[in-house]
Design a protein around this nucleic acid. Structure first.
Lengths: 214, 214
DNA sequence: TAGATTGTTAATCGATTAACAATC
DNA sequence: TAGATTGTTAATCGATTAACAATC
């Protein structure tokens, strides 16, 4: 790979947004777009978009702009969206089921191969084409078909135990919906946290601290 | 309220994390904590924590630290968590149901009073104690019991239409799980976006671009 | 070629960290 | 009082924006 060193997370977190919007443009048949047009549609500065893209290479053409389809593919490649990392999901509750179906639609670089739960009434149930397995068979399953990522849709306490088991098996990558702090325990893990209640509290702050809000 | 002007979102987004951790400490019976201890447990600098808190007032005591319970209450107050904003949820699919049950547990400043969907097989179903209503009765419901926040758990296209209806009714605050860009259309709305696929793609990047990752 | 728009460097802005005086 | 830790100012660091030369 060419440049790509010390890219900041601020930049990385904008890439999926670019990608989604470019896919949208492509689906509408748009072939070409300039950084200025993009910036207007996304509410960013043209400068920032060019700066961001140039962390990874010169994908545009002076005097012309960017080819929508090409840029789309470039970003997909940067993000690694065709890697299809084997993934298991822990916790087949409401949220787990929602995430499982979400991961089946989207082409986000992961391939869900197993769902686990500890509740007898959940085990055996089919969720998006996968049979929910007993968490007791986690190690056995992973020996046969080693997943590289685990989605945590279980409560905090369950996460602590599960992450330890998963770490021992060799799983290092986590999409974490629980409030368990994986990084503090395993600094070498790669974790993406989704704290829905944090997001909700942030919204609460915005509403509570905006003059005209009801 | 005392200071509180131009507080950056960087600061605000850390508050829920502080709050969660302080609640956790309190539940374990911890009475007092210093910024240094907190920083170690959260993986931040003590300086940043003190700086953050002092945006809102001096909640600590020199030579002593912070009272866990008091600080907890202060942050809850800053976030407005006791406001119980009346909330409706649009879209009773997997995700909508997960979020509905999530909002019932947590005391995050909102009070879910209605769930709506357009699919006949969903209407009439009970989700977390609320009966799923026909989206056709949205305006009628809101006239009687005006909600201040709406949770969007519907696809992008449905969101475009729904947000317009909600905006016309007077709803200005949105917790948005769809990919519809509310702010671009209604700049005066207060929106908190949760883009699960963006989060997943970010994780994909981290895994794909870390030397030893599998 | 002339016009447009990129790629890239320099300037600005904001956020984080360090330092220390205030004070419990 | 002495020790500890805050509140707050100053220094540093990083991210965003502006500007413009390169070039299609």
């Amino acid at each position: 790979m060419p440049k790509r060193e010390n890219i900041s997370m601020s930049v990385i977190r904008r890439l999926p947004r670019y990608y989604r919007f470019l896919k949208h443009l492509r689906s509408k048949g748009v072939v070409r777009i300039s950084s200025t047009e993009l910036s207007a549609k996304l509410g960013l500065t043209a400068s920032q978009i060019r700066q961001d893209l140039n962390c990874f290479g010169g994908f545009g053409q002076q005097g012309y702009g960017y080819m929508v389809d090409q840029l789309c593919e470039e970003i997909a490649h940067i993000l690694g969206l065709s890697n299809g990392y084997k993934t298991i999901l822990l916790g087949a509750g409401n949220l787990g089921q929602a995430i499982a179906s979400h991961m089946s639609f989207e082409d986000d670089g992961f391939n869900l191969i197993g769902i686990f739960d500890s509740a007898p009434q959940k085990i055996g149930k089919t969720v998006n084409g996968l049979t929910v397995q007993d968490i007791a068979s986690l190690e056995e399953f992973c020996q046969a078909d080693m997943p590289s990522m685990a989605v945590l849709c279980v409560p905090r306490e369950a996460s602590a135990v599960l992450v330890e088991r998963l770490y021992n098996i060799g799983v290092r990558n986590f999409w974490n919906f629980s409030h368990y702090d994986i990084i503090m325990k395993y600094p070498d893990a790669l974790v993406e946290n989704v704290h829905l209640s944090d997001s909700l509290m942030t919204l609460c702050y915005k509403i509570s601290n905006t003059p005209d809000a009801s």
